[in-house]
Lab assay of single mutants.
Amino acid sequence: PREAYIVTIEKGKPGQTVTWYQLRADHPKPDSLISEHPTAQEAMDAKKRYED
């Protein structure tokens, strides 16, 4: 089974940042970016789909 994890990042100019959620996995390479999402819920949904 595949495993993934969610990383929170800040995008934008200082003082005007927006939080994004990255879905990452250690396949095919360590810390590979799988997808980016504007909400934590979307990231969790993507994580479930990826791991299923």
Rank of each mutant, 00 (worst) to 15 (best):
I6E: 00
G15D: 07
P38A: 14
Y21H: 03
E42V: 03
Q16H: 12
K48D: 07
E51Y: 08
S32M: 10
Y50C: 03
D45M: 12
D52N: 14
I6T: 02
K13D: 13
M44D: 07
H37T: 01
H27A: 07
E51S: 07
W20S: 04
E36N: 04
H27I: 12
I9D: 02
P30L: 10
G12M: 05
I34D: 00
R2Y: 13
I34H: 03
D52S: 15
P14G: 09
G12S: 05
V18Q: 12
E36K: 02
A4K: 01
S35Q: 01
E51P: 04
G12H: 06
L23I: 06
S32L: 08
L33P: 03
K29H: 14
A43P: 00
A46N: 03
M44H: 10
I9H: 04
Y21S: 00
V7M: 07
P38W: 06
D26I: 08
R2G: 11
V7K: 08
P1Q: 13
E42D: 11
D45E: 14
R24T: 03
D26R: 14
P30A: 10
P1K: 15
D52A: 15
D26W: 09
I6L: 05
E51H: 07
A40T: 06
K13A: 13
S35M: 01
K13Q: 14
D31V: 05
A40Y: 15
P38N: 07
H27K: 11
R24G: 01
D31S: 12
P14I: 11
K29N: 12
P1T: 13
S32G: 06
Q16V: 09
A40R: 15
R49N: 10
Y50L: 07
L23T: 02
A4H: 05
A4N: 02
K47D: 00
A43M: 01
V7H: 05
S35P: 00
P28W: 06
A43W: 00
P28D: 08
Q41I: 11
E36M: 05
G15L: 06
V18S: 11
K29R: 12
S32N: 08
E51K: 07
P30Q: 09
L33F: 11
V18H: 10
D26A: 13
P28L: 12
H37K: 01
K13G: 13
W20Q: 03
I34E: 01
R24H: 05
K29Q: 12
K48N: 09
A46C: 04
Q22A: 04
G12I: 05
V18D: 10
M44F: 13
P14Y: 11
D52Y: 13
T8W: 07
E51A: 07
H27Q: 13
Q41K: 13
K11G: 04
T17P: 07
D45S: 10
D26T: 11
T8N: 06
P28Q: 07
R2Q: 07
E51Q: 11
D31I: 03
Q22E: 08
T19W: 07
P38V: 09
A43T: 02
E42I: 04
T39E: 03
Q41P: 06
K47V: 03
P28F: 06
P1F: 14
W20Y: 09
I9V: 14
I6V: 08
E42G: 08
I34C: 03
S32R: 15
H27E: 12
P14H: 10
K11S: 05
A25I: 14
M44P: 00
Y21R: 00
K11W: 06
K48E: 09
P30D: 06
A40K: 15
E42S: 08
V7D: 02
P30N: 08
R2W: 14
G12Q: 05
P30C: 09
E10M: 11
H37Y: 07
Y21T: 00
E51C: 06
